[in-house]
Amino acid sequence: MIRLERAGLPPDTAEHLGTYTRQIEKTADSGRKAKAAELWSHTTVRRRVRGGLLATLADMAPGHQRCMYCGDSQGTDIDHFEPKSLAPTRTFEWLNHLLACAYCNSNQKRDAFPRSEEDGSPLLVDPTLEDPLDHLRLVLPLCTYKALTPQGEACIDVFGLNSRGVLVDGRRTAYETAKQSIELWRIAADRKQHDKAAKVVEVAWDRPLADVLAGMFHQSGHPAAELLFSGEEENLGLLRDQELRQAFLSRA
């Protein structure tokens, strides 16, 4: 997971979302769940809102429309961050929509929405509101996640971030590829090949599992960076190169 900026919706899509939200709010509390489900599955309603939602979410998503949760597979589903079965009045709320792959949406998350036992606040991280790096640390080079907070622990559990072998293996590959990318950028920059250097940055962020690259830059500034990158001093030196950091992080 990486930090994302929420974009504005097309005016007609936003208008339709507001109309359907008001219809649900006018329904008696006991019938709101059914009303929300009925509207969301209605052919006309989906035709009016789905295109605008998917297009905007795709523009916000990492890489080429990657899932906002696992960062690996292509995002195909409009996920309700707080499930519509639990919060029917938020079914058509733009701030409650994220782009997810079918596996994260239907196999992993489903209607799961853990809350803190202390204050009832959500434990899952919405990457458009919080920086996942505040809650999750990628253990390099194992490429598994360590929870820094209860929210991070919940994300690891709900999305299977460490239990899905394909994700862990994919991150290991992404880690090696990311190291090659920063080396290629330094070579191109030293040779004054500015267009080539810019392309290296673009491709690096567009690859699946861009959270690995984000985690590398984040951890290179950690007080214990020398320990975290033990045996990879050259890699750490590149990640701390201010010119290189500017080039990559301005694109993130």
Rank of each mutant, 00 (worst) to 15 (best):
E25H: 03
K35L: 08
A197Q: 06
V166M: 09
T21R: 14
H80C: 09
E243D: 13
R90D: 15
E243P: 00
K199A: 15
C101E: 07
E5Y: 03
F92D: 08
C104M: 01
L124F: 08
S73I: 03
R191Q: 13
D190C: 03
A198C: 00
H222E: 15
L4C: 11
G8R: 10
D134M: 05
T44A: 15
I187P: 00
K35S: 12
L184K: 14
Y20T: 04
T43A: 15
D190R: 13
A58D: 12
I78L: 02
R207G: 00
D157L: 11
F81E: 01
C104R: 02
F92C: 11
Y175A: 06
C155G: 00
R66H: 15
R46H: 10
P141W: 14
R137W: 05
W94M: 06
T44R: 13
W40G: 08
A188M: 01
N107K: 14
T43Y: 13
E38W: 04
K33V: 13
L136Q: 01
E93M: 02
I156E: 05
N235E: 12
E243F: 05
L161S: 05
A102C: 08
A36D: 12
T19E: 14
G18D: 03
R164W: 01
E15C: 05
A87Q: 06
C101L: 03
G51D: 11
R137Q: 12
S250W: 12
Q74F: 07
D157S: 13
H42S: 14
D195L: 14
Y103N: 07
A61N: 06
L136K: 05
Y103T: 13
S250H: 14
E25P: 00
G221Q: 14
H222C: 03
R6L: 04
I2G: 08
A36N: 10
S220Q: 07
D77F: 05
A174R: 13
A224T: 11
K84G: 04
A225C: 04
A147G: 08
S116D: 14
D211S: 12
F92E: 05
P132M: 06
K199P: 00
P11Y: 02
A224F: 09
R207A: 13
L167N: 08
L54M: 15
L239S: 08
G71M: 02
P141G: 09
A37T: 10
L17V: 01
E118M: 02
L227Y: 08
E234M: 04
S250Q: 15
R164K: 11
L238G: 06
E118H: 09
T13A: 11
E202L: 10
E202G: 03
T144H: 06
E25Q: 15
L98A: 06
L133F: 02
L161N: 03
D111Q: 12
R48C: 07
